[in-house]
Design a binder for these strands. Structure first.
Length: 861
RNA sequence: CGGCCGGUAGUCUAGCGGAAGGAUGCCCGCUUGGCGUGCGGGUGAUCCCGGGUUCAAAUCCCGGCCGGUCCA
């Protein structure tokens, strides 16, 4: 079968590009592509961030179509333009192990694309035009001879959708995929969709590589950076033919790439060079390639708001940084990563100016991550030593695969590092080829529990949309409404309501529903599809009844202060700590609320104070707060993705909450919550606590309004109480506490000194009676500390002494060397319950002292 | 969100059911012309918190807090 791709066909363009058209840079190819499609009626769209904040199913954008999922692809929202062309930076970590090795894999790439969205009433174009565009672009724009281009038909499936597709290949390299998405996959069957989408993807880097014909894609894309990095690290330029051939063969043995050592030998053999020489040449090259690829991807991520972390999207950034460091370490490259990043950022400046803007943040975070990783690696020798000893205890000569997996999983130590540390302990460790699949087996996927709906959607599907009075007037505290349906005697649906349903981090309102003949407490309110369901306690109103709803206003007004306060606070945090601050979660509550933000260190008390000052300045300025509903595309175009602080907003129209006047707004966010009219109503914003909840995420716990006052009053009360206890005034609280602590310390020291003196005196006056060839002394003392001291002095002075301390129903036996075991045995017979070992025993004894003495004497004779 | 590992003097670390040990740091002597060094002495720990099991818990069990790490 002819497939035209790796591994069937070796690349035919290396050292021999298929065109005479000369391109100078990656940017030129991008520009040619976008201009070409602009000439053919497409609108150019600005790239989206690589962090998919508008989605809750993925962290990163992996293809241009991600930009339009799910709202556009489901038909809910119109595309920003139609047809459109874009070059979308995308990140895929699925092939991360092959990067630097296969010669063609990248974690970050630009997917150039043209998309057409065909609606039943508006047809743009379909298969014929799409293939023609592709053909013309490659032949006319890039000058590739027609016979060099292969279109391979196939079926594409992904994300619940499917459709036919063409893979476009040139000399063994897949340069584009043209997908015609028009099925939904339902229960394994294809269901025709009303919306038919042309989804194309042209690999910018691959096309550039093809045109350049360099040994690897990295040489083409990162050429200038690699040259400088070689100079800096002292890694020499590799022999051209070796790298070219190596990447061809590596490309062909993709599936086995993990079994690296074997792959090296095989390829060296194929090329006809010495395996050891080959390894020494290739390893540092691979490290540089990984560095080049990963540093660009990480820079994109950080510039778009990712902070390296131990969880979430941040972990992916950390993973790439650590992989880079590990590869450099293995290749023996010892240059600070920051310097190499900085070098690369200078090269990236022209193509990605927004990444350049984040330069200082990127460098700071990379430096921090490098430091943290060094700490991890520093733990290697002792962790490995411990593991080796543990293995030996269980009779194993060395570490096995399970031990290596455990070390990686719990301590973050990669097997190569472990092997190296073990070697210096004189232990040979073999790294198994299937290491990474063993690791994967340890992380068996858990099933995601689908959220249980309050009421089945089917039971309310026929009802009209509930009118949302809380949006029309957030200050409405009571309203009249008609009962449309009552389910299970406790779920009430009204035609309209002022009760806010839980959402956007704001909890549901509570209150009462009053009706002729009774009233019911509203304890929870939830959205179910397009209606709002009130969960009631007590006798629910009958269907069809007129009710008066009364919202618990004190609580709700408090929540509104919290919610508007949240917006003021997050913007203030951003202004103080920097533009990398994004909301990572929030919960409004009474009496305290919290916001989690992306930040890489705990803010200092000064920064917190500055944030409070700024936020309360906004409160005092009494700025107006507006909520307006706007089409999604318009809002995104006007404000950018900073809108999505609170997470996914699942609608075609989004509600935008703006604080401050139009000409100079303080903050703008997409938000579905209830807000105040003016910031002055917040009264006071007080941060109560900041804590690090994960690497890269800081939690602010704060309060507003009267709750803030109550908090401050409580602090004041505590200070007054503490001052009273410390015996000073509130003004001198710190001084009196200091004195108190000092006095306590002195008192402890004195007590200890006296205890020593007392123990010495006791030891002096101990009267031992003979017991066999030993001496026995019994002391009544109900202080274990003192007893220990006494025993220490007495038994070290007289090795034949057996000291028995009786007190509080307990008996302790101390000896200066005499084995305590026979004594314990004898004592058990007279009611002693306890035990010990060597020179000490302890236990419970309730009998009289004479019996005890006799028993011990008897045991010793 | 979750799995795994860990939390013992200021710092690092041993002990993993029976009287909390070492290294480093700090203080005081001696050594030296002085610094380093060396030697001797001293100082420093609610064994993360709470509950349980036990005659006895740093140690075993449960819960929490904090840190590390891996995976989504």
């Amino acid at each position: 079968m002819y497939c035209g791709d790796q591994p069937c066909v070796p690349y035919g363009f290396i050292g021999n590009p298929p065109t005479k058209v000369a391109v100078e840079s990656l940017g030129e190819v991008r520009e040619r592509f976008l201009r070409f499609f602009e000439r053919h009626g497409h609108t150019r769209i600005k790239r989206y961030p690589v962090v998919a904040r508008w989605r809750d199913d993925v962290y990163l954008v992996g293809a241009s179509i991600y930009d339009f999922q799910p709202w556009v692809t489901s038909g809910a929202v119109p595309p920003p333009a139609n047809p459109l062309a874009i070059s979308q930076p995308s990140i895929r970590l699925t092939d991360v192990d092959k990067v630097g090795r296969s010669g063609r894999h990248l974690t970050g790439f630009e997917m150039m694309a043209h998309h057409a969205f065909n609606y039943p009433d508006k047809f743009i174009y379909w298969i014929d035009e799409t293939t023609e565009y592709a053909y013309e672009f490659f032949t006319k724009e890039l000058g590739i001879p027609p016979h060099e281009i292969t279109f391979k038909e196939s079926m594409w499936e992904g994300g619940g959708n499917a459709g036919e597709c063409f893979e476009v290949l040139v000399r063994g390299l897949e340069v584009a995929t043209l997908v015609f998405m028009h099925y939904e996959v339902k229960d394994g069957k294809y269901v025709e969709l009303p919306l038919k989408i042309v989804d194309t993807g042209y690999g910018l880097e691959r096309i550039y590589w093809l045109l350049k014909g360099t040994p690897t894609i990295y040489d083409a894309v990162f050429g200038p950076f690699l040259a400088k990095a070689r100079e800096k690290t002292g890694v020499p330029e590799p022999p051209k033919d070796v790298m070219g051939k190596a990447s061809i063969y590596f490309g062909q043995m993709d599936p086995e790439v993990i079994a690296l050592e074997k792959a090296y030998d095989l390829i060296a053999e194929k090329i006809g060079v010495d395996p050891k020489w080959f390894r020494d040449v290739v390893r540092p090259q691979e490290a540089l390639y990984v560095l080049a690829d990963h540093s660009r991807t990480v820079s994109w991520m950080i510039a778009d708001g990712v902070i390296p972390s131990n969880s979430g999207a941040g972990y992916l950034a950390r993973l790439l940084i650590r992989r880079t460091l590990r590869n450099m370490a293995i290749a023996g490259i010892d240059v600070p990563l920051v310097e190499l990043f900085d070098m690369h950022l200078k090269e990236l400046r022209a193509d990605y100016p927004e990444v350049w803007d984040a330069r200082s943040l990127i460098l700071e975070l990379v430096e921090l991550e490098e430091k943290k990783y060094r700490e991890v690696l520093k733990s290697a020798p002792s962790a490995v030593k411990k593991a080796v000893e543990e293995a030996r205890r269980r009779g194993k000569p060395s570490l096995d695969a399970d031990d290596l997996v455990a070390l990686y999983d719990s301590a973050g130590l990669p097997p190569e590092i472990v092997a190296e540390a073990a070697k210096s302990l004189g232990v040979e460790v073999k790294v198994p080829d299937d290491f990474y699949s063993r690791l994967a087996a340890r992380h068996v996927k858990r099933e995601k529990q689908p959220e249980r709906a309050l009421v089945e959607m089917a039971k309310v599907i026929d009802l009209p949309r509930t009118r949302e009075l809380f949006y029309e007037d957030p200050y409405m505290r009571s309203f009249k409404a008609k009962v449309l349906r009552v389910l299970d005697g406790r779920y009430v649906v009204l035609d309209q309501t002022a009760f806010y349903p839980e959402g956007g981090g704001q909890p549901a309102d509570v209150g009462v529903l009053k009706y002729a003949g009774g009233e019911a407490k509203v304890v929870d309110v939830q959205r179910v599809g397009h209606v709002i369901v009130h969960v009631v306690e007590g006798q629910p109103p009958p269907e069809g009844a007129e009710v008066v709803g009364e919202v618990d206003w004190e609580r709700r007004y408090g929540l509104m202060k919290m919610h508007t306060g949240t917006h003021v606070l997050i913007q203030s945090i951003r202004r103080v700590l920097g533009p990398h601050i994004w909301q990572a979660g929030a919960q409004k509550d009474i009496p305290s609320s919290r916001i989690d933000v992306t930040h890489y260190k705990l803010p200092t008390p000064e920064e917190v104070a500055e944030i409070e000052r700024l936020a309360n300045g906004v409160v005092q300025a009494d700025l107006p707060v507006y909520a307006k509903v706007m089409p999604r595309n318009e809002a995104e175009a006007k404000y950018g993705f900073i809108l999505y602080q609170g997470g996914v907003v699942p609608a075609r129209e989004i509600r935008v909450v703006q604080i401050g006047p139009d000409e100079s707004p303080y903050d703008v966010q997409a938000c579905g919550g209830t807000h105040l009219r003016r910031t002055g109503e917040i009264g006071l914003i007080k941060i109560q606590k900041v804590e690090r909840i994960a690497d890269g995420v800081v939690r602010f716990i704060f309060t507003t309004g009267m709750h803030a006052l109550a908090y401050v009053q409580e602090l004041e009360r505590q200070a007054a109480e503490a001052a009273a206890i410390a015996g000073g005034s509130r003004e001198s609280l710190v001084e009196s506490v200091k004195k108190l602590a000092q006095r306590a310390e002195e008192a402890e020291k004195r007590a200890k000194r006296y205890a020593e003196l007392y123990a010495a005196a006791l030891a002096e006056s101990l009267k031992g009676e003979p017991a066999g060839r030993y001496k026995l002394a019994v002391v009544e003392l109900d202080d274990e500390e003192l007893a220990k001291r006494l025993a220490q002095t007495a038994t070290s002075r007289d090795k034949d002494l057996i000291l028995v301390v009786v007190g509080g129903g307990r008996v302790s036996i101390y000896t200066g060397g005499v084995d305590v075991a026979p004594i314990v045995k004898a004592l058990r017979e007279v009611g002693f319950r306890g035990g010990g070992s060597k020179t000490f025993a302890q236990g419970q004894y309730r009998g009289d002292v004479e019996t005890l003495k006799e028993a011990i004497k008897k045991a010793l004779t």
